[in-house]
Amino acid sequence: MTIAISLKDLRKVYANGTEALKGISLDVEQGDFFALLGPNGAGKTTIIGIISTLVNKTAGNVEVFDKRVDTHIYETKLDLGVVPQEINFSQFEKVQDIVMTQAGYYGLPRKLASQRCEKYLRKLGLWEKRSERSRSLSGGMKRRLMIARALVHEPRLLILDEPTAGVDIELRRSMWEFLTEMNNKGTTIILTTHYLEEAEQLCRNIAIIDDGEIIENTSMKSLLADLDSQVFILDSATEIPAQLNLDLPNISLYRIDGHSFEVTVTGDQSINEVFSRLDQQGVKVNSMRNKTNRLEQLFLARLRDN
């Protein structure tokens, strides 16, 4: 399997003495949808900065599709598309000009650039806005514009640094669909996000970074398999008895109010048994939801352990 990106013992000490990365090593396979998670200041954006050459590394090595970023500057950059965390295009330029200019930087002839520009602006729902100045776009549109701009040279590796931050849920879901489609067509995607639900939904593999170090690097499936308990909130149409007892192993109950309660399910215990016991006691459940996102639970646990 080809490695899309390989980081070896990557270190970064900023001029003010802050040690942002303490020897990060990480491989992301071609075709992967990879999540890079971590709290604020963990070093995610520094990693992306080093890969995209916006940040000078202190030590270590970065390879993109088996080519060192230091020595194969042009080849590696052609393979790379970056969507940064903060808006970084001119607020005075028109939408179409921003994408066309980026295509020009990659040496795309005008006709091809124009076709690609239309293709990605249409895909991201910005074609109708092409003649408007970028400052007039909404926050979500600006983020989509940065994605269109990063894709115009059709890179094999796309890195997105919190692309859905501040974007409403409907738009976020349409961006998920778009990114999934890109990944299905073969683009390797690395995503940093604060929405853990997003990482769980989209990504196959995950690395958790904290204080400049990788504290977990595994598949999403095996990470979630580590989760030994889940907490659900159940709402009942009928009044819940004050002394509700299910008498089930690995199940604990906490009554929130007269119509809702928390159920903690541990190990392999099936939730179906909870429903049948509740039914026997005359409690009719009309809705159920996870108290916290499963990945969020794990994420916080890993950070605590670290």
């Binding site: 050459t53 916006l54 970084n88 001119s90 200019t101 990659y106």
Partner: peptide, 15 residues
Amino acid sequence: SHKFQRSIEELLVSP
């Protein structure tokens, strides 16, 4: 102005 608006990054990440 490119530095201030960070649009210089468009150029720096390109080849």
